[in-house]
Design a binder for these strands. Structure first.
Length: 130
DNA sequence: ATTCTGACA
DNA sequence: TGTCAGAA
């Protein structure tokens, strides 16, 4: 299958499919004319990548995860790397979450201190945005 | 019609 | 991440 079909069936844009390949996530064969030629396995991997991307995982994380999740070989590795990766992702998310909570608290404080019935700030924002 | 690579208002 | 160009 060529890139257009893979894009349609995986929901990943052609642009992103090429990007993921540049990142070493997908390695489709090439036809004589240089066109990418995806296998059925590539399609399944693309769909998995789609899932991981929607979960907010980075390409780096996918590099660790993919070898563990998609197991072409009948032998299942312990994949200790998988657990480590997942744990670091959760840790990363926890850090982001605390950052967001910090921002929320700060902005909520601004809101709490905002005088009532005053539209002047809104007006100035609109004029600067326009 | 589709894909390829490289570049960017 | 989209999109446009120029070539195949």
């Amino acid at each position: 299958m060529r890139i257009g079909e893979i894009s349609d069936r995986s929901g990943i844009s052609i642009r992103m499919l090429r990007f993921y390949e540049a990142e070493g996530l997908l390695r489709p064969h090439r036809t004589e004319k240089g066109y990418r030629d995806y296998s059925q396995d590539d399609l399944e991997e693309a769909r998995l990548i789609r899932q991981l991307a929607e979960a907010g995982l980075t390409v780096e994380a996918m590099h660790d995860l993919l070898p563990c999740i998609i197991s072409p070989e009948p032998t299942f590795h312990p994949c200790d790397r998988l657990r480590a990766r997942l744990e670091s992702e959760v840790a990363k998310l926890d850090r982001k979450l605390s950052d967001i909570e910090r921002s929320r608290a700060q902005i909520a404080a601004y809101l709490a201190g905002l005088p009532r019935g005053d539209q002047s700030d809104t007006a100035s924002l609109q004029s600067e945005t326009a």
